[in-house]
Design a protein around this nucleic acid. Structure first.
Lengths: 118, 118
DNA sequence: ACAATAAATCCATATTTCTGCAAACATAGA
DNA sequence: TCTATGTTTGCAGAAATATGGATTTATTGT
């Protein structure tokens, strides 16, 4: 428990909104997909660029945004920067959405989401 | 099967990105929360406005955006317009996120999301 | 037909976001 | 130290988004 969930619900909602916003763009959502596919190793910027085929500065801006929302982590590997998906935060976000849709209300059936419940 | 999942995966990702974007704002995420809390009845615009306390034109714009992304449904009720959360689409979105995080990769543990798996 | 209420549209403005070129910075190897 | 490579930063223009006051449209009751 360090930095997780020690905020007012009001601020929390704003934070989740920011996360959705960060994933609310095709290039960035694709970046997240790529990082998750390569999890837990993650990918070096060059590899992401190759996968998405966008100019490096544009990619860098997108990565910055994802980093700002804490959706990805970075570490340097000599000349390279290796990005990984921040699964803790993704888990938090998924949990929020699941709670809003399935727990708090009966709006969506849990089994419609999880096929493999065993 | 009518209008659901009959698109290329490339376009699908763009669509999910647009949905995330639509929920990527505090006022709109709150609107969705309110509608889900009132599900399946939904809420009349005036009720939403009362809950969020924002001018009607601003609210109307937000509702339009959510409607454009098919996240909400509207029906007229005499003088009122009643908005409801579109649970089919929310389910689709939740499924997508779950699949990316939990199914396709082992990135996030399913049990971390669903506490009540029985 | 008229008044009253609900909600959307029109319009204008301020702000943010997206994109990418050019330049800077970081690291490693010769 | 010079060079090469990987990545970010600075900047700047274009486009999209957010906001809200004023007006319009829609519906109902009288």
């Amino acid at each position: 428990m360090l930095g997780t969930q020690n905020k007012k619900p009001a601020e929390q909602v704003a934070r989740y909104a920011d996360m959705f916003s960060a994933m609310g763009t095709e290039p960035r959502l694709r970046i997240m997909q790529a990082l998750l596919s390569a999890h837990p190793d993650g990918l070096v910027v060059g590899e992401i660029q190759e996968a998405l085929d966008i100019p490096n500065s544009t990619l860098s801006h997108h990565l910055e945004k994802l980093k700002n929302e804490d959706l990805v982590r970075v570490r340097r590997e000599s000349t390279f920067l290796r990005y990984t998906a921040n699964t803790e935060v993704l888990q938090e976000l998924l949990r929020f959405l699941y709670a809003e849709c399935c727990s708090r209300n009966k709006a969506v059936e849990p089994k419609a989401i999880i096929q493999v419940c065993r």
